[in-house]
Design a protein around this nucleic acid. Structure first.
Length: 799
RNA sequence: GGGCAAGUGGUGGAAUGGCAUACACGACAGACUUAAAAUCUGUUGGCCGUAAGGUCGUGAGGGUUCAACUCCCUCCUUGCCCACCA
């Protein structure tokens, strides 16, 4: 006999919607709880990753509702982006029509899962009522000098025909299509996220409930490194070359310096020298190499001598100036001091080109003082040698002393360098938020006035896929009048990166229809910050960093009174099939809808929570889903055998399990919570359960299998939704056992178990243990050296 | 190259100093059935043993401890992040 999941699920989905049971407002007297999942890109179908993400969140939401919280649990769509445009090119549709259809399909599937969303708050970033506020935020940033336009070498994806942010380049390829990224000189809009680098790094410390992984990924990405900028004077010209180092303790071993080939000084210092031609040839060669090739770590380090010399300021030694491909213009000062004995790259380069080496840090384990005897650079700690007045100091101590001394002497400056770059947000794409800027021949770059927002995206544009901004081809869009002089002017035709849209959507959910600003400050004050955020680890750097940046910006504007948007973060693991990530290209996709058809949403929810803890990878198993379904049927049948009065022992078991399940659900250990419920059900089958016992089981299973439990709850005669029932409490008095089983070990090995009354004294336990017949062969009258007693648990006899 | 995480039965996993393998899947057996499915009830880490029981066992090796999957050190493997970053 099976429960009829299809009818039951449809019935309750309709009922929840009719009652508007998940609609919330800020005027409730209850304590707020804001639960948020990373909103999806509307591709049209939900996949197992979505199911897992949203099921985890839904259990938490329903649990919090039952705990009496005022739970905000919204859903929306990150609707701008390239796939819509690509689909438009392929299927000859319009991106907005395609996107809206996808959203409708997706909503149907999300609703079939029974998720507890407040659909009244639904937002789509492609609605002008949303992206109007993207433009508003952009203008505010422009006002504050945080949005600016500059020409520079940018990452360019030839396949997507658009620029990419640094964060969107993964191993030299495009994050979306993996095409090798090229460098292109373009004038583009940037956001000055670097203004917030210190705060973004420091405030990570507040995020105690974030996974360590995300924490370290963010701090790696921001990449603070402390060191010294050292000034090397050029010998023949009145010029100084600053270099940056984190190893100022090795300065006395700096026997040459190396500039990046693009370094502006290079061409000046080689002028007229015999080396001029070889240097220019080398620069030419390097410039033709792509960044990817150049950054591959196995490539041999190449370089040439410039013919110039500089002076090492600590010992006035003349050192040759080289250029080499392994020095990058983008990092530090674009020039390095080379210490071949204590840096492996410098070592290889010096060997190749026969450059002077000098040991300045003595490896405590290694006796050689002659660099020729070493086969690699020593990068560890040691004692200073050949380092003038700093000889004999441990290098870590010398690092500080040398830096201070150099600052005093005016030959160096203690400095901090950062890896974080400004955020490039211009995209040469149609399906995004138009950047609200106007170019006037007379007035220059002029922002669109606030009251002229939104700058609406024209309904259609010619997509050729050939690159260049499609908006540039829409005459009615481009041509406009200058807000200042009213003369003829042109609009900016690039659109914003879609990560802009998702950097503040969590604020919009607090007041999704507010039209006086991006959000209602009172509502935000009530709901924010997000108490629990749930999503994929793939957003650990991009989206989470940008959202933190926006939040800090709003704080500086005085619009919010907190500095971090997400108090707790849970990053759910991926769903695998046969050990591999489910993907179309691998052809190992399991479609959630087919599982819902066959077993129902409740079974799918139960399985996906039971199969693995939320943070770890989950291996999809078709047999496991059968098991989950069987369990629900087993619960269903309990109702037929309810007794007038439950067995007293079962009640005790129940209280113990209420404790365990509550603790597990509270800490998102849904897999063990379900295991405990299964034990509970096994205990019921071995015993006699009554209505109350069964009700408690239903309430606790409710967040996991909501339709199923609502139906049984109603069949017990309850008039209101199970969501209005309060979470069961356990009676601590019933947890106390009269007898406990004590494990008896001899020399750490289990040899016996004895039942004793709970809470008896150590000496009584010892007496009982020594009387135990089972232990006789092990003890054999050997003297007992030690006896460890762990109350109510274990005794260990050491002989 | 650097950083972080993980490694437990046939499988997913549980236990974070105190009985290793909870719970489930799978497998095997029994009950019900003309039969099958479903359901219910058992058994199920390896080795030795008819059994009682013994013994080995949480990637490998070492250490701390009365006691280690758990803490420390070395190594191996896998995954993720960063990376000619000075």
């Amino acid at each position: 006999m099976f429960y009829t999941f299809k009818e039951i699920e449809e019935k309750w989905q309709k009922e929840w919607e009719r009652q508007k049971i998940f609609s919330v407002n800020s005027s409730s007297g209850r304590k707020k709880y804001y639960l948020l999942e990373m909103f999806p890109y509307p591709s049209g179908k939900i996949h197992m990753g979505h199911v897992r993400n949203y099921t985890i969140a839904d259990v938490a939401a329903r649990y919090k509702i039952m705990q009496g919280f005022n739970v905000l649990h919204p859903m929306g769509f990150d609707a701008f982006g390239q796939p819509a445009e690509n689909a438009a090119i392929k299927n000859k549709t319009r991106p907005d029509a395609w996107t809206r259809k996808c959203i409708e399909w997706m909503k149907v599937e999300l609703k079939k899962m029974g998720f507890s969303y407040d659909w009244d708050r639904e937002i789509s970033t492609c609605d002008s009522s949303y992206y109007k506020w993207n433009q508003w935020i952009f203008l505010k940033m422009f006002e504050k000098g945080l949005a600016y336009k500059r020409a520079s070498a940018v990452n360019w994806c030839p396949s997507c025909a658009t620029t990419l942010a640094n964060e969107e380049v993964i191993e030299g390829g495009c994050w979306r299509c993996h095409t090798k990224v090229e460098q292109k000189d373009l004038e583009q809009w940037y956001l000055k996220i670097t203004d917030y680098k210190e705060k973004l790094l420091e405030d990570l410390a507040q995020l105690k409930d974030w996974p360590d992984r995300v924490f370290s990924m963010q701090s790696n990405w921001i990449g603070r490194s402390q060191g010294v900028e050292i000034y090397f004077k050029l010998k023949e010209a009145d010029k100084t070359i600053p270099v940056f180092t984190t190893r100022v303790d090795t300065i006395f071993g700096a026997t040459y310096i190396v500039l990046a080939p693009e370094h502006p000084l290079v061409k000046k210092i080689v002028k007229g020298k015999p080396q001029e031609k070889s240097v220019l040839d080398f620069i030419d060669k390097v410039s033709q190499e792509s960044k990817v090739v150049r950054q591959a770590s196995d490539v041999k380090k190449e370089g040439v001598f410039t013919g110039a010399y500089a002076v090492n300021p600590v010992n006035n030694e003349e050192v040759p100036v080289w250029i080499a491909d392994y020095v990058l213009m983008e990092y530090g000062t674009g020039a390095i001091m080379a210490v071949p004995t204590h840096d492996q790259r410098d070592f290889l380069f010096a060997k190749e080109h026969n450059l002077l080496m000098r040991i300045v840090i003595k490896d405590p384990e290694f006796k050689a003082q002659n660099p020729n005897e070493t086969s690699q650079a020593y990068e560890g700690d040691g004692t200073q040698v050949n380092s003038g007045q700093f000889n004999g100091l441990p290098n870590q101590e010398a690092k500080i002393k040398i830096a201070e001394w150099m600052e005093k002497e005016g030959i160096g400056k203690i400095q901090t360098h950062w890896r974080l770059r400004d955020w490039l947000i211009s995209r040469q794409r149609y399906w995004g938020t138009p950047i609200p800027m106007i170019y006037c021949k007379k007035c220059g770059t002029v922002p669109v006035p606030y009251d002229a927002l939104p700058v609406k995206l024209p309904a259609d544009a010619p997509f050729t896929g050939e690159g260049g901004s499609p908006l540039g081809k829409v005459k009615e869009f481009v041509e406009c009048s200058c807000p200042k002089c009213h003369g003829s002017a042109r609009r900016e035709t690039d659109t914003m990166a879609t990560f802009f849209d998702s950097s503040w959507y969590f604020l919009r959910f607090c007041s999704p229809n507010f039209d006086q600003g991006p959000f209602d400050r009172q509502e935000v004050k009530y709901w924010m910050p997000v108490d629990q955020y749930i999503g994929g680890i793939e957003h650990a750097v991009l989206h989470l960093l940008y959202s933190r940046f926006f939040t800090k910006f709003f704080q500086d504007l005085g619009y919010v009174d907190f500095n971090e948007p997400f108090t707790r973060l849970l990053t759910q693991g991926m769903v695998l099939k046969d050990g591999e990530v489910m993907s179309k290209s691998r052809g190992n996709i399991v479609d959630p809808d087919s599982i819902i058809q066959r077993y129902g949403a409740d079974t799918l929810r139960l399985f996906i929570l039971f199969a693995a803890p939320p943070e770890t990878e989950l291996e999809w198993d078709d047999r496991g889903i059968e098991g989950a379904h069987k369990f629900l049927n087993r619960v269903w049948r309990i109702r037929e055998n309810l007794k007038e009065k439950a067995d007293q022992d079962l009640i005790k078991v129940m209280h113990r399990l209420i404790k365990r399940i509550t603790e597990d659900v509270e800490s998102f250990k849904f897999n063990t919570a379900i295991a405990a419920m299964m034990e509970f059900v096994n205990a019921i089958y071995q015993s006699a359960a009554d209505r109350e016992v069964f009700s408690n089981l239903l309430i606790m299973l409710g967040p996991i299998a909501p339709h199923f439990c609502e139906e049984l709850w109603q069949s017990l005669g309850n008039k209101e939704s199970i969501l209005k029932a309060s979470w069961p409490k356990y009676d601590p008095a019933l947890l106390v056992e009269e007898n406990v089983t004590i494990v008896v070990q001899v020399n750490g090995k289990v040899r016996s178990k004895i039942d004793v009354p709970a809470g008896i004294s150590e000496s009584e336990i010892k007496k009982l243990v020594l009387a135990d017949e089972k232990l006789k062969p092990w003890l054999q009258n050997k003297p007992i050296k030690n006896c460890i007693v762990v109350p109510n648990k274990l005794v260990n006899l050491v002989i």
